[in-house]
Design a protein around this nucleic acid. Sequence first.
DNA 1: GCGTCGACTGCAAACCTTTGCAGTGAAATA
DNA 2: TATTTCACTGCAAAGGTTTGCAGTCGACGC
Lengths: 380, 380
Amino acid sequence: MPVTIRDVARASGVHISTVSRTFSAPHLVNPETRVRVLACAEDLGYRPNRAARALITGRTHNIGLIIADIANPFFPPLIKAAESQARHRDYHVFVADTNEDPSVEEELVHALAKQVDGVLLCSPRMSNSLIEQLSREVPLVVVNRQVAGLPCVLMDVGQGARAAIEHLIGLGHTRIALLGGPRGSWTNREMRRAAGVAARSGGAELTVLGPNPPTETGGLALAEQVRRSGVSGVLAYNDLMAIGLIEGLDTLGVGVPQEMSVVGVDDIALSRLTRPKLTTVATPTAAAGRTAVDMLLQQDADPPRGARGVGVATAAGVRRTTAQVMLQTDLVIRDSTGPGPRSGRHRAGAAAQGPGPQRLAGPGDPTTATGDVVASYAKE
Amino acid sequence: MPVTIRDVARASGVHISTVSRTFSAPHLVNPETRVRVLACAEDLGYRPNRAARALITGRTHNIGLIIADIANPFFPPLIKAAESQARHRDYHVFVADTNEDPSVEEELVHALAKQVDGVLLCSPRMSNSLIEQLSREVPLVVVNRQVAGLPCVLMDVGQGARAAIEHLIGLGHTRIALLGGPRGSWTNREMRRAAGVAARSGGAELTVLGPNPPTETGGLALAEQVRRSGVSGVLAYNDLMAIGLIEGLDTLGVGVPQEMSVVGVDDIALSRLTRPKLTTVATPTAAAGRTAVDMLLQQDADPPRGARGVGVATAAGVRRTTAQVMLQTDLVIRDSTGPGPRSGRHRAGAAAQGPGPQRLAGPGDPTTATGDVVASYAKE
DNA sequence: GCGTCGACTGCAAACCTTTGCAGTGAAATA
DNA sequence: TATTTCACTGCAAAGGTTTGCAGTCGACGC
């Protein structure tokens, strides 16, 4: 039933090699022949069998995309962009979810290796050395992780964390908490480092809480601890945790941004839709996906691994393109951050206005629990 | 560099066919030989080449997952569940995004056909007849679409829409709007049908607005129209639209649920996190993903298409398993729906309580813009 | 008129695996 | 002892495609 190159050859009265060339090296075949072959192929509904092609060329025209958690809203835009970019370059993409489990990551790379021309490792949780080792088996591009000798796409969360901390300090917050993310996350380390520096040079005190699961639940569970820690500003590992935290603070009667300012990271679509709208460090996820795919395919373009004439030479250990791309992040200020304890002036002003029409006028403060705010201050 | 069955054979002193059997039919090889071969394979890091295997067996152990829009939060849980289920059955999955474009859908099925054992079509936008035609090329399972003769996984949005309408009517709403989804969506047709019936038998008036893009923007754009239409209750095609609508209504000064009750569909994670929390029809997306994969693989288990000994007989036109699974939906009532104009009693009661501590006690109504409610009533 | 070149096409090997068939030797049966 | 059975293994073809090499044929230059 499946129509092969052979059927097309028979139908158009040429040898199979001519049909093959019609598709993979058109300039080598007579224009007349070419149109005839193409017509027959079209007629018969012929599509080249990529598995067979892969067998001989050594290139599958597939790539793998290994994701820590598809359900984490950070990733879908990345997946979408990567898939789109790949398809434009005539590649298909395997997507696999590791559930944040490093051993699954490793297993998946092995399992996919023979079936793809390269793998995108997104926010991997395994060790650098393991990644390096795996990269000898199949070309790898790493997103959100810095591995020496491997092409990486990084988002400058360091810069973002710094901007966030400076923003909080600028608002008058002097005691700030950093909600750490999962163990093994490069982003996490980077944020801690940068936030520490920024806090120190801004004269603020930084408390690090974590590591924590990078989820809404993770943030929610920290609400009590955050309240007791005496901070007035929080930078969360990501938006999900920030949202969870706000949720938790809300049930504890702590108003955001009145009593606590919260900054997230990622700018997932969701963060525009919560109340209050989240102040957050926007990471260029789609761009990261596109860039990573480009780097993978470019790297892939050079060594025709396993091709016929090439012989030895291209042993897999050889150093490949090793570019590292750092993508800009942006602090987007919305409604979850407000003046800190220092700037009593602003606070008083805010507290004075009741929940009137001005709630509707501007972004304002939707929870409007004025009484609670005051009470909480007394406590502090 | 890539280690093949041949290397393992040489290392363990047996013929390649024995190595092959060690992996694909272990009971046919002497236990002693088997362990020796396995040891060598392990040593050398051998992994069977699935492409080569596919070439001869006709089964790739891959499936395709074609998604209207990965960035739509409805899909990631489905993708995640499907991928997980597939992997447990030793299948890998291609994910592709069509951007809601029917022609891309078709192209993708063609492109993937030779590389997969089956394709999951999730909420397809193309015509039934085209789907049917494509199913002759590769086994198909359809999610959120009813196609005669094809295995389908459906979510009972009809039942869900009915429950939602009844819920609204029960709250005293008699004029209700349905925000339609995209053209070509089975879910959309089903909802319209069921909502129409439910409204009629409940004595309510139903206005259908649409079709609309199933996004936040789509909902937001309808706010003005909804306000002017004079309805007090809205059932949206999905949560995203519902959230967009609430957003839009908010900027128009229309409070939810005080002046307008809004029900969504899907129960995406997000809907628990917005304010007000969304009343919505929960669809079992993860279960749908799992079920669809199971149906695909089961269907796939029967005909060893293209296998060697089989000869003709299993022409692809032959009717396959044609089960249709209908998955239950559940109305989950949260905070975006409230008493309608009829039940003035409840409203008054609600309006009487200020935004005090009881806001924190229960789910209550977080926006608490009591004044607005009254004003709005006057308007009406 | 001969040689050369170039454009085009055919031939056949190779990629890695699976599998029907046949062969081996030993054990079980008659 | 002769025969059958059985467990195991090897042989070789097949699957669809690419590609180096070689062949054909007409055109062109001298």
